[in-house]
């Protein structure tokens, strides 16, 4: 109990300190708006990548349409704020719920089967969503996009700070939820499905139920990420959610290590930053970026973290045994 409490205090303290400290640095201008933009964007990417890791890395079901879920969350949240004038927080949650419902109906027929069917279905689903968004002109603005989505605050000087705080707070929350879930009996069941579906089944685990749970939750988190993305950018266009966007998340997950929360967090921040950092290479940016990915995959095929976790609590002495997550990579 004491270890648990101690770990909790260390992690909660570190998270809050890091969040407040970085927010303050952005507020006083030590971290400029551009860097704040990248950090916030990285936060959104991490949220969606984590959701993908839940279904792909931990449950072992390849999904290729997370940009589609993100799009639903983004448009649903934006429409809730703009058309129904709901408060931002409620809209984000509602957007995530709508996405989860979609996830449920996509998962229901596909997850009964074992094999790579989910990859194909989600791939198609992502494209369908994009095309629907283009054609639902009255609601989504069609190909012109949805303009003027209210931001986290109207105050321009506060915008970078508050965007960062909201997004990173949400990211920490997602990390905590995922970490606790994966260390519960439900999480063990989910991981056992990845390891061996038949063995899990014969041990009395309801494989379909846990796959559905994982997939729906994954959609929920991706929808939340989408909602934050919409509020953060203030502009949505269906082309922002194409297949390449889904690939970006797969890259983050694979590079960080399938089945590692900290791996996804680290690679999410590193890759988002890398793409912007490489702007100094000018025209060769998109040559160098894939080249770096190639090198990492060649020398570290299991991803940066493999399936290991980096435990912040272990930094503070050998007593800590469990619990991880937190603020790595920020």
């Amino acid at each position: 109990m004491t270890t648990k409490l101690r770990n909790f205090i260390i992690l909660a303290g570190l998270s809050v300190i890091a969040l407040v400290a970085v927010s303050l640095l952005i507020y006083v201008g030590v971290i400029d708006e551009y860097t704040a933009q990248i950090l916030t964007l990285a936060g959104v990417n991490v949220i969606v990548a984590l959701s993908l890791n839940l279904i792909t890395g931990f449950t072992g079901q390849l999904a290729l349409g997370h940009a589609g879920f993100m799009a639903i969350g983004a448009y649903a949240a934006a429409i809730c704020v703009m058309h129904f004038h709901l408060p931002l927080f409620a809209s984000l949650i509602l957007g995530a719920f709508v996405t989860a419902i979609f996830g449920f109906f996509i998962g229901f027929p596909t997850l009964k089967l074992s094999g790579d069917y989910l990859a194909i279905v989600t791939l198609g689903f992502g494209e369908i969503i994009r095309v629907i968004m283009v054609n639902l002109k009255d609601l989504t603005g069609g190909a012109a996009g949805l303009k003027g989505i209210p931001s986290f605050t109207k105050d321009l000087t506060l915008q970078p700070t508050l965007s960062f705080t909201w997004v990173i707070a949400a990211m920490i929350l997602v990390i905590v939820v995922m970490h606790n879930l994966l260390h519960s009996s439900v999480g063990r069941a989910i991981i056992s499905i990845r390891e061996d579906e038949i063995a899990a089944n014969s041990m009395g685990i309801n494989v379909f139920y846990y796959k559905m749970l994982s997939f729906t939750l994954s959609a929920f988190i991706a929808g939340l990420g989408g909602g934050l993305y919409a509020t953060f950018f203030g502009y949505l266009n269906p082309t922002m959610f194409n297949f390449l966007k889904s690939c970006d998340f797969v890259i983050i997950v694979v590079l960080g290590g399938m089945g590692s929360i900290t791996g996804t967090v680290i690679s999410g921040f590193v890759l988002t930053y890398l793409q912007e950092f490489l702007r100094i290479m000018q025209d060769y940016r998109l040559v160098i970026y894939p080249f770096i990915l190639l090198l990492i995959m060649l020398f570290r095929p299991q991803g940066l973290m493999g399936s290991h976790e980096f435990r912040l609590t272990s930094v503070f002495g050998p007593r800590a045994k469990r619990t991880a997550g937190g603020k790595e990579g920020v």
Binding site: D32, E33, Y34, Q37, L41, E276, D283
Partner: peptide
């Protein structure tokens, strides 16, 4: 470079104006 993509454009804009 904006890669003809709205989100990359926003990043580029922030870089140019703030940094």
């Amino acid at each position: 470079d904006d890669q003809a993509s709205p989100d990359v454009t926003t990043n580029a804009f922030k870089k140019l104006t703030s940094s």
